[in-house]
Design a protein around this nucleic acid. Sequence first.
DNA 1: CTCCAGGCATGAG
DNA 2: CTCATGCATGGA
Length: 338
Amino acid sequence: MGETLDISRRLCAHGSARAHNLVEVLIPGGEFDLEATFESGQCFRWRRVRAGQYIGVIGRSAIHVQQILPRALTDPLAPPPSGARRGNALLVRVVGGMIPPEAEQAFIRYFDLSRDYPAILRRLRRDAAFARVAPRRAGIHILRQDPFEAIISFIISANNHIPRIRGILERLCARYGEEIRTPFGPVYTFPRPEVLAEARLADLREGCGLGYRDRYVWRTARTIAECSDFASWSEWPTPVLRERLLALEGVGEKVADCILLFGFHRLEVFPVDTWIARAMRELYFPDRMPRLREIHACAVERFGVYAGVAQQYLYAAFRARGRAARLPHEVSTAEEDP
DNA sequence: CTCCAGGCATGAG
DNA sequence: CTCATGCATGGA
């Protein structure tokens, strides 16, 4: 990629820190925006503990993460960073559970920090309509989440509110995941497929609040638990993997595409939900309602191999606008307010 | 109180 | 293949 990463890191060398499983890694973040990424709807389990500070789980590690500007910290009189936010960095701390081997590489990989998102966004912004609504700063990254977690999460996301999705996943993990104690309270790993496959449907439905999706989650967990080659799915070509995902209970086109993008990091995949359908219609089909196929074709044509990244920026832009306007409910007449 | 949510499975035409 | 309908639950 374009920029080489100048890794600077601090490891807690003193014994007490190690005894408490504390590891700190300081990673340059480019234009990365932690909050925008976490609030962009691709993940559901990161919990904000203070402004700009989050607790979550990566693999079997409990993680505390916050975004910092090293120059501002070391030199309060330094001029404020320019629009490009030089010096942007992530402070990632392992606050419980296992310390991942090659921790900093693991975190760079999870937050996808070695990819040149500014270059991707510049490319995408050559599309005039996209540039009109998308931000200039490449704050949102596509995280590398666990595939099974993505599968279950987006099955639950169907016809559901994000706050409720978060609640369901929280209960699911508290009940079937493994507890990790942290100074911020307990967190839980995502349940393994075999554990969910052994769950009782009634516990999933009433205990976790899954509703009618209990069957989808249970059967999909069972399928994957019994699948001998699930670990190799990540190496399959996208169309093959997509067909395999569509065969899972509770996985339709939209959910399959979310799993491909957020769970298998297939950045060319363009999930079309109600928000994206609305956005694409407004941007590219002002006078009619296109079919799903048309929207997909339009996205591939305009955004190419990074259509999934474009989708995430469009989603964030239109959701933010929707929240601000209290759900405009088809208020038509596209007028610009820059 | 209704309405609806980043849709999906199902059945009918 | 395309389209309409029911769906558990709990925020707004």
